[in-house]
Design a binder for these strands. Structure first.
Length: 850
RNA sequence: AGGCACGUACGUCAAUGGUAGACGGCUUCCCUUACAAGGAAGAGGUUGGGGGUUCGAAUCCCUCCGUGCCUACCA
């Protein structure tokens, strides 16, 4: 499971992911696989620290009043008392995780895995401490990784500032969005090929408002097309300028501090000012000096803290970093050679993942927080750095006990990156690790492919030498009814718990399962229809149980080889087999939408609308008999199989109903000693499809539907008596209808059914065709308007002819015959012949009316 | 700024290059002995526009329009 934040509560995204994971787990479990779905939570560094800090603030205290140790203790207390709401909600959602193995990223075993990884990477030179420019959040007072920063478009200004040149009356104009940083400028850069400035390269600029003299340098980074083609360089406060400064050995003048206030270095007049106040003042000063050329409106993107939305201040700071090249290369190699992980859907995620990896930069892993894994590095009084698995080990290595631990903690994602193996006991060679690693599949939302998925792959390859999972299933996003992303700030989120309350967990799960990988607008109507489906299941089961006296579930009754079964029995067994096969195929291919549709139609259409209706004559009989018991038992048995097929999607209703069914309900052999539960029965695998039964039943359905259609078109009341005449040349087929006349009578409300080799119906009849040779007529003395009936038959004929015309055009094309597969050509020809016969029969019927 | 998706019935979504489907909604009829949260029968589409490839295109290619997402160091 992607471990949710300890501070979080269940939202639609979780509900979706958890439903899919649960369906997969329950399905595999029912097939006898040893499944592990391991739950847990993430300590969520910043967000948890903020939450507890906020609570402290209400008491008028800050974390500094408590001190580190008591603050961390306070967070643990919060975690014990009110953290992990989501685990309760997951129980409600029916998530069949193994709670006995629940993990928390700050647990001692996971923490020791974190230290182990840190030490090993440090020893290999892949983790280092360095002084570099980083993303700093002045509000949260911590460094952030590139992924924790969001770029937002911003309407701003572009300021054109003029800098005088020493020993010249020329000025050079630079464009900037942040005038206040000019106080930290240590150079002006132009493109080496820019002829406008070629003479000025090497000249000295007299930086206004300061006493500094700074050089004009040439660097390829500068785009001559943008602004004036000359750029002010502030190595201490801009990532690009930092790089340029490195290349040209420019000094770094720090003019903004960690609270985004101007430093003493900025000069007396500016020191202590907020960055925006300083900006205003700098612009005023330039204007007063006549050095402000112009200000233009300019839209650019600004970096904000993903969490608190404060504008990021790039600062030079000493932090811990992880080198990514080697890790990245192994991940790319894994994908190239073994196609792991396999993304579902492959497009676009495989490419997105690859592109991101290819452009990966070093990862800033330290955070200036108290809540998290404290960095296992210690410093001696002489400044020596010691990285060790424990303080004792560090003392020993240092040869002194006078050491202090690094105050920073690790990025939350550092421990999450180890989740697939740290939760299984690594670095110990545990049985669990051997059994369950590599895992089969990860289900996740696309926004953490970089933050989490890629990092798990990299650490997995580095420390286990094997991929953490074979497949990655990336879910779609549930949007609101307007197509907007659901978010806390927009207040447009739909709470899954409310949906559970309103429509039930099972209905919600079906709705979510069919979302699969597509982005979908939330539509409550959909849930409502699945609630109705659940109701339908309940009522169908009620019917089966109402007539269950003398009956019980008996799997042998679904064997078609031995018994001489009625058509509808052979048919439902065939449908059941087909459905089971389709379900297993759909689930193996992660086709959840198809799986849900398959279940819905099997249960509602096949089982309820036809099978139950056709069973009624036997099942509801008042007189006990072996035949009645068998019919009842077979009905119960089909229901029992259907419940098993439904179970991974609808655990609650299936468990409840399954428990009520009497009879032989064996568990899967893998769980033979367990307490009875539908969870541990065998998922039906499906058997042979009976094509004869399917096609005969289809004819019966066509007959019933056709008669009902005529009833509707002639506005016949249910109480109106009708006689149905059927003309069927084939003796075999005639037998099928003869055997089912009582059924057809019940389903159509007909008084008599007369099956014969050829139709002999009065002129005043409504007619339709079962096939081109098989006809049905309903005499309607006094009710048939001959002109109307003619039109009705004409309309049917027109429909057929339109289709035939299309096919004929296709066949008329000589290329079709030569190039299309023979099978397709044959199909088209067959269909045309069928339509011709059908059409002729209709002509005959029309003629009879005249 | 680049990159990537998406656009199918009134709505939400399906459809290995082979006659475009489902559910909801809508229309008509029915409280038929499991279920009115139900039953029966229907209507509804030139698959965003245009062009191309192909025997054949919702599907592959190009282009335009519209929508969304991701990445990025343009001061």
């Amino acid at each position: 499971i992607p471990p949710p934040n300890v501070t979080g509560s269940l939202h639609m995204g979780h509900a979706l992911q958890h439903t899919l994971m649960d369906v997969m787990t329950r399905h595999k479990r029912m097939r006898g696989y040893r499944t592990l779905w391991l739950p847990g939570m993430d300590h969520a560094g910043i967000s948890t620290q903020l939450m507890v800090s906020r609570a402290l603030k209400k008491e008028g205290k800050s974390r500094h009043d408590l001190g580190r140790e008591s603050f961390v203790e306070r967070v643990w207390k919060w975690k014990r008392e009110s953290g992990g709401q989501i685990t309760k909600q997951m129980r409600r959602a029916g998530s069949s995780v193994d709670w006995s193995r629940e993990k928390f990223t700050m647990d001692e075993d996971l923490s020791s895995a974190v230290r182990e990884v840190f030490v090993r990477l440090y020893e290999e030179g892949m983790i280092y401490r360095g002084n570099r420019i980083v993303n700093w959040c002045p509000q949260d007072q911590t460094v952030l990784s590139d992924l924790e920063v969001e770029k937002l478009p911003q309407a701003g200004k572009l300021y054109y500032l003029q800098y005088p040149i020493k020993n010249s009356d020329r000025r050079v104009t630079v464009a900037t969005t942040r005038p206040e940083t000019m106080l930290g400028d240590t150079g002006v850069a132009v493109n080496p090929s820019d002829e406008r400035y070629s003479e000025l390269v090497g000249a000295t600029v007299l930086l206004p408002l300061t006493n500094r003299e700074i050089p004009i340098i040439a660097d390829d980074f500068v785009d001559p097309e943008f602004g004036t083609g000359a750029v002010k360089v502030t190595p201490a406060h801009d990532p690009n300028d930092y790089d340029m400064g490195q290349r040209h050995d420019l000094p770094q003048v720090v003019v903004i501090d960690t609270f985004a206030k101007m430093t003493a270095e900025a000069g007396e007049r500016f020191a202590g000012l907020d960055r925006y106040e300083a900006r205003k003042l700098v612009v005023e000063e330039f204007e007063a000096l006549g050095l402000l050329e112009k200000i233009v409106d300019y839209e650019f993107s600004i970096s904000k803290c993903e969490r608190c939305k404060t504008v990021i201040e790039p600062l030079i700071s000493t932090q811990w970093f992880m080198k990514m090249d080697q890790l990245r290369d192994r991940a790319l190699d894994l994908l190239a050679r073994e196609k792991k992980p396999r993304f579902v859907p492959e497009t676009p995620y495989e490419k997105v993942y690859t592109n991101w990896l290819e452009n990966l930069r070093d990862w800033t892993i330290s955070r200036q927080l108290w809540w998290g894994h404290q960095i296992p590095a210690w410093y001696t009084r002489t400044g020596e750095v010691i990285v060790a698995r424990s303080e004792d080990e560090a003392r020993e290595m240092a040869g002194t006990s006078e050491i202090t631990q690094d105050q920073d903690v690790l990025d939350t994602w550092f421990s999450s990156a180890l989740w697939p193996f740290s939760t299984l006991g690594w670095p110990n060679e545990t049985e669990d690790l051997k059994t369950f690693y590599p895992t089969s599949v990860l289900v996740t939302a696309r926004d953490i492919i970089f933050l989490w998925v890629s990092r798990m792959v990299m650490t997995g390859m580095q420390f286990i030498g094997k991929e953490p999972f074979a497949d990655v299933f990336v879910t779609g996003t549930i949007l609101d009814a307007q197509g907007q992303r659901m978010s806390k700030t927009k207040m447009n989120g739909v709470d899954p718990l409310d949906v559970f309350d309103k429509f039930g967990v099972d209905a919600t799960r079906l709705t979510l399962a069919q979302v699969g990988t597509t982005d979908t607008r939330w539509n409550e109507k959909q849930v409502e229809s699945y609630r109705n489906f659940a109701n339908k299941i309940w009522n169908a089961a009620r019917f089966c149980l109402l007539y269950s006296e003398g009956a019980k579930v008996k799997p042998a009754l679904l064997q078609t080889t031995t018994a001489n079964l009625a058509l509808h029995d052979r048919w439902i067994i065939s449908r059941l087999n087909k459905t089971a096969r389709d379900m297993n195929a759909a689930l193996a291919a992660y086709e959840f939408h198809g799986a849900v549709q398959t279940l819905y139609h099997f249960f509602w259409d096949d089982f309820c609308d036809w099978y139950i209706e056709l069973s009624k004559s036997d099942v509801t009989s008042d007189t006990p008999s072996a035949q009645r018991d068998e019919a009842r038992s077979r009905l119960l048995t089909v229901l029992e199989h259907a419940l098993r097929l439904l179970h991974p999607f609808m655990p609650y209703i299936t468990e409840e109903l399954w428990g009520r069914l009497p009879g032989e309900k064996p568990l899967h052999p893998a769980y033979s000693n367990a307490e009875p539960t539908v969870m541990l029965t065998a998922y039906p695998q499906g058997g042979p499809v009976d094509e004869t039964a399917e096609s005969e039943m289809n004819m019966l359905i066509t007959l019933v539907t056709g008669v009902r259609n005529i009833r509707a078109e002639y506005n016949l009341k249910p109480s109106d008596k009708i006689n149905v005449l059927i003309g069927i040349p084939s003796p075999n087929l005639r037998k099928v209808f003869e055997e089912n006349t009582d059924q057809v009578k019940r389903l159509t409300g007909a008084s008599t059914i007369d099956v014969s080799a050829s139709l002999n119906a009065p002129k005043a009849s409504a007619k339709f065709l079962l096939t081109s040779t098989d006809e049905v007529a309903i005499p309607l003395e006094g009710l048939v308007d001959f002109a109307e009936e003619t039109k009705r038959l004409q309309r049917k004929k027109e429909k057929l002819e339109a289709e035939a015309k299309k096919l004929q055009a296709q066949l008329a094309n000589p290329d079709f015959a030569t190039r299309a597969p023979a099978e397709k050509v044959q199909q088209a020809q067959d269909r045309i012949r069928e339509i011709e016969l059908h059409s002729k029969a209709l002509d005959q019927a029309i003629e009879n009316l005249q």
